[in-house]
Design a protein around this nucleic acid. Structure first.
Lengths: 294, 294
DNA sequence: CGTCATTACGGAATGCGTAATGATA
DNA sequence: TATCATTACGCATTCCGTAATGACG
């Protein structure tokens, strides 16, 4: 069967057209080189070289085989190199899930940082809600996911990637638009567009927690899942909404944003989750990258 | 260093994800298979498989290496196949020189016949005058050439590829156009556009031979090299010309052709020439093809 | 305790290098 | 006769297969 060492021998002889020089180039003596070529010719059942004791010339078949041999050798070379890079986490593909809201500001910054730090790495991105990401991580469809906490599946590990403030979204003409900042007290009378308890449980629970213990609860007039849909209702005057600060990136026409003062200034968290004991080398680099991000 | 057998072993295990089944597929026992994988991993300095005594899984590096390994194996397979085909003369490139006149009729027929008989063969064609073709064959720039005889260089061999009649080219309004055929006698008074003695020595000598011994020589009013140029002069009424029958394929406007009766009915020969002892396997097939051509 | 990957070990084959041979100008 | 590819031969290494070991359910 074909053999890399035979290919190297043939390439050397074909380029030198001289067994002695080729052997020197290969750090070996002529006799074994001679035999390697003979074996290769027997394996192929094709004469590659016309040789007398005075001259060595390529046959037509040899001329056709030489570039193929070089190509195979080059391919083997790059394959080993790339594989080492992948093993070291400096190259390859990382399949990453993300929630819609993280795409507004955080994800693009992550992609840019990744491209700068690891140019040979490709992020394969898929938008999914948190629950689907957990499934996808467990089944191996994605290597990691940017999800809303808490991550309490025993097969998963996670760490915080981002914590951002909440802001109040108001319709452009609203009386509170003029304020520099708002507190929860300012919202106690307001109609609020809220989050669906199952599909957007993280923000739903966050809101419930914020208002827990207060005398008067705000009126939740709708419950939605996606932030851009919520802003649409805000714009239509259905109510105000509490959204993560990244929502301001949307520049939603007819919607204004106002900072919200809270005891916990950055309550909206995004975590990176992955399967416990994952052997994807890229993951370690991605986590290092996340920790360095502002 | 990398090894084809290791690649085959890895491919089998990566596809089966089971050393036992992979070993069976490779017609070997598990232990050497195990070691081949270990050696491959040491050569690459990369772990390709995660294996417990209960399960075998690919690592990220292994997933990236598998398609490369398969590609290398496939390439090696096709390279051996193609090389065998080239050696057998059923594939490859044959660099063929040809004279301008042979391109009118003979060369296209040869190309078609070649394509039908040997679909994996490419003819690389170069128009050159006979003298240049001889040089090009000797220097290896072309493998063979369609040239005008005689071929008397000791390093060359040749055989006749084609013998065609001569025809008389006349301007459209010429008195002799009405004739069904002409003889040399009909031309003894005529002005003739002839061939340059050096650049077109074959046709020059042919004409000289034809009229040798006759009482009155025709008047050679011009000496050119290329047939299409000669026909241009014929059309302008400068004189008649004797050209190979293939020239009729040109459909030169304002030029008529008339058969020429000669003792030797097909005096214009085209030969295939090649370097003596050429080892180009395709050449044998091309010669066989030529002999079968009408 | 059964399955499956790995390690241990003995024998065969492969491959190197040195020395001898053969062919060619 | 000098050069250069090939054949001959001895030695070390590699690699297979059988047998033993070890890990995991």
């Amino acid at each position: 069967m074909l053999d890399f060492s035979q290919l190297r021998c043939f390439a050397a002889v074909a380029e030198e057209l001289h067994f002695g020089r080729a052997a020197a180039r290969l750090n070996m003596t002529q006799p074994p080189l001679s035999r390697q070529i003979q074996v290769l010719e027997r394996v192929l059942d094709v004469q590659l070289l016309d040789r007398t004791s005075r001259s060595v010339r390529l046959t037509a078949a040899g001329r056709s085989f030489l570039p193929e041999a070089l190509r195979i050798l080059r391919l083997a070379e790059t394959a080993t190199h790339v594989t080492r890079q992948v093993a070291a986490g400096r190259a390859g593909v990382l399949k990453l899930g993300f929630t819609a809201a993280s795409a507004y500001d955080f994800l693009p910054r992550l992609v840019i940082a990744c491209r700068n730090a690891m140019p040979d790495v490709t992020l394969s991105l898929r938008e999914m809600v948190t629950k689907d990401q957990v499934e996808a991580i467990l089944s191996g469809q994605i290597d990691a996911g940017l999800i809303r906490p808490p991550v309490n599946h025993p097969e998963l590990e996670a760490e915080r990637a981002l914590a951002e403030p909440l802001v109040v979204a108001l319709p452009a003409g609203h009386a509170l638009v003029a304020r520099h900042s708002l507190s929860l007290d300012d919202l106690h009378d307001a109609a609020l567009v809220g989050y669906a308890p199952h599909e957007a449980s993280y923000f739903h629970d966050l809101l419930v927690g914020l208002f827990a213990g207060g005398d008067r609860q705000p009126r939740i007039v709708q419950q939605l899942t996606q932030i851009h849909s919520i802003l649409g209702l805000v714009r239509a005057g259905i109510g105000l909404a509490l959204v993560p600060a990244a929502a301001e990136c949307l520049r939603f026409e007819g919607v204004a944003f106002c900072p919200l003062d809270l005891a916990q200034p950055r309550p909206a968290e995004l975590h990176l989750a992955w399967r416990r004991g994952s052997d994807v080398p890229l993951l370690a680099h991605l986590r290092a990258l996340l920790r360095e991000m502002p």
